[in-house]
């Protein structure tokens, strides 16, 4: 018996279906690749939200701003290849907000911590206490496990199946 694993991408995705005798808003059904096909580069679009926690679908294309968060975040590359560069934060750069990612107003001033180059299926730690920047030569997709924060974009009516 042979198998063919189906992994969608920006270039090829097929959304499933939702047929319910219920309010479809309760299910917030969307597709990460469809969301990122319509997103601006590095727009952090919430596709899952569980009280204060969130998963953000991000179209990686070109170079991102520098981000930091007061807690760990995790990025799963869903399509393409993304380079993640990490710097330590100086005391003055440490975030004072409660949760979620925030962008730095200038390049980070601390020591360079290193970099990760990740492709589809790789999960990357975005550690608390660091600044990180994403780079992608071609349009790519990552899903970030985080908390809702200043950079989170909510547009549920645009991304979800409602009928």
């Amino acid at each position: 018996m042979s198998f063919k694993t189906r992994m969608a991408s920006l270039a090829s995705y097929e959304k499933g279906s939702i047929e319910l005798n219920d309010d479809l808003k309760h299910y917030a059904f969307s597709n990460i690749f469809e969301v990122c096909s319509k997103s601006r580069p590095y727009e952090r679009v919430m596709v899952a939200s569980n009280l204060e926690y969130a998963a953000e679908a991000v179209r990686a294309e070109g170079t991102s701003p520098w981000y930091t968060a007061p807690h760990d975040e995790f990025a799963i590359v869903m399509d393409g290849e993304i380079e993640f560069t990490f710097f330590q934060l100086t005391d003055a750069e440490k975030p004072t907000h409660k949760s979620g990612a925030i962008r730095l107003q200038a390049d980070p001033g601390g020591k360079r911590m290193g970099r990760v180059i990740a492709r589809r299926g790789h999960e990357v730690l975005l550690p608390k206490g660091s600044a990180y920047q994403l780079k992608a030569a071609m349009p790519s997709v990552t899903l970030i496990q985080t908390s809702a924060g200043p950079e989170s974009v909510e547009k549920w009516s645009e991304i979800c199946v409602l009928k």
């Binding site: 189906r6 969608a8 995705y13 097929e14 959304k15 939702i18 319910l20 299910y27 969307s30």
Partner: peptide
């Protein structure tokens, strides 16, 4: 009812 989730779907 039912939901069919395919690669990349979130629900």
């Amino acid at each position: 009812g039912r939901i069919v989730m395919k690669s990349g779907d979130v629900c």
